[in-house]
Write a protein that binds this DNA or RNA. Sequence first.
DNA 1: ACCACTTGGTAAATGCATTTACCAATGGCT
DNA 2: AGCCATTGGTAAATGCATTTACCAAGTGGT
Lengths: 368, 368
Amino acid sequence: MFAKRTTLADVARMAGLSPTAASLILNGKPDTRFSAEAHARVHAAAAELGYRPNIGARALRTDRTLSIAFISDVVATTRFASGLIQGALEEAERAGHVVLVMETRGEPAREVEAIEAVLDRQVDGIIFGTVRARELYVPDLPEATKVVMLNATNPRHGVSVLPDEEAGGRAAVDLLAAAGHSEGIALIGQNDEAERDLFRSATVDRRIRGLRSELAQLGLTLVAEESCWDWEPHNGYDLTAELLDRRTDVRALLCMNDRLAFGAYQACTERGLTVGQDISIVSFDNDELASYLRPGLTTIGLPHVVMGREAVRLLLSNAGPGERLIPMPVVERSSIARVTPARSGTADLATRRLAELRAGTGADAADA
Amino acid sequence: MFAKRTTLADVARMAGLSPTAASLILNGKPDTRFSAEAHARVHAAAAELGYRPNIGARALRTDRTLSIAFISDVVATTRFASGLIQGALEEAERAGHVVLVMETRGEPAREVEAIEAVLDRQVDGIIFGTVRARELYVPDLPEATKVVMLNATNPRHGVSVLPDEEAGGRAAVDLLAAAGHSEGIALIGQNDEAERDLFRSATVDRRIRGLRSELAQLGLTLVAEESCWDWEPHNGYDLTAELLDRRTDVRALLCMNDRLAFGAYQACTERGLTVGQDISIVSFDNDELASYLRPGLTTIGLPHVVMGREAVRLLLSNAGPGERLIPMPVVERSSIARVTPARSGTADLATRRLAELRAGTGADAADA
DNA sequence: ACCACTTGGTAAATGCATTTACCAATGGCT
DNA sequence: AGCCATTGGTAAATGCATTTACCAAGTGGT
């Protein structure tokens, strides 16, 4: 279409002014006294020629590229990573920034390479993301580099964005208790005894803490805790099948994630139990899966998109260090049965606490 | 850690040579007669100082940024988009390039903005991707811009990468026929009569063409074709439930995607039919879902990752125009029942044709 | 002794936008 | 008339790497 990009010099020439004038005017610098005439001529010329500044050239002087890097261990495996990226993309767009995405597959060598590659391109900041929230190793960086940890923490880089798992854990329990469950609640995927020295992830620890403390607050106990390392559907199936065959008093399942819940559904169905009627299930993540199940799975969602947005916002606003906890939306579908409570006081209390959690955090609107 | 990046001038100074010498030597220019001494000193200095060229500055003269853009309608909704991105990232990494990811949400205005944003940053090329393969509108571009269409086509930009849906459609039919099915095969999700004037997507059309032509080749016919616009689990459930209640001779379901198949599983199970025994199901996509189901779903996979890789390879190799068809892997799990064939000749033929498809394309290894 | 190469380099221009330092002309004031 | 401020600009330096044009010293041949 057109042979070469127009440069600032072209605009200046057409406007009959110096490049200095053109630059100053187009960038709207204050305290620079050019005539209204000059302003008009420069803007007209720029529009006429379709002038767009060469960002690389500009960066040479300003050290700002309007580009940020998103370095993640994994981008495609789960919808979680994509959600983080999507949120980051949205917010970056709003701020006129562009996002350079890198995948490290968790390999430290690859991480070093990724960092160098983006530093070579003078990015304005780096977001380090992980799928399994954890303390992430980050190599030395020039100290001026702005960094935000997304779903991760790092002692040297204090700004991090995490889901509010503690509140999420509480909400899951409240959901069950508010529906009248006070007995026969089992945990699928975790057992403190068995996993004493096992580090899963920083956020899962908080999820469990919230969950247990809420059980304690409400005076409830678990009838079983089934532990497994991987949280895949077949694990959920095996654990649930075994549990249901072993005892008959199970009325509600707290699953550590939706994939486990998916397996649990299958085990229940096979045993003639209808989820949402004969047995309740609540879990975490709000995977795509959760909406496919019948009845729909009630779950505490991971607010990926909001987290991604928030990370970019923090990065570009030079926020001070600290953890930003993003509320987890409670997504109610139909997997929780309403039962007549053994102790209705508990159910009422749970209902109140749940309402507080939701109001306090605006959790429902959080991941639109 | 360190105050400022080292520049080429720093390296030159430390080596006691001119920046010219340093540049020429570090870039390994041929026919430039510097002493072995000089080479050694420059390399030593560069290593000592940890010199890395400023890519933006370099681009000013070379017009190459070692960056490419990936502009897609959607990035997070499906694993499909993430797979494309992952493949692109992998191949770009190998080539020392970095990927700038943009999402347009299918809005033309946003697409124009995205293109301008990446052009402002002098990318070496652009990949336009879509989730629903279709002819994609692309605004005018400077004619030197290199473009590859990924899962999309465009009359002005001839290079495109698509899944080989025609072969995929054939394979699905062969799979069923080879297992002995020759009667009672139903199609879930599509009906030519009902959808005569409906454009779904370029690739789905090919999928159906392959499927029908293979049925014809083998002398098979369908007992039913159930149409619906969305291919979500609940559609699969409704269609299958209604079909099974209507007729009792259905033995195999060809589902247009895995989500439909997921719904179909539920309908079958509810009716006491065990998938992989009483009824066979085969579908398309190889969603995460497919491996979660019990029994595992046999499906013709979408080779996202390979497609993403291929797109970058084509972009960077200045390939001539044309469609690159990427083989779809046939992923055999356990949803197809082996039945004694009514006509064993047909089953043998299907087996041979399937083997040819797989051998000819290397489809199995295609999406590792 | 002189010319023609070869060897081993360097100075300076270039790409593009930003920014600092400076300048000419005009008007106002005393 | 002389001086200062203001108005409305511009020239040139800058950031960094690449690249073209050029040069000085040495070598070999005659």
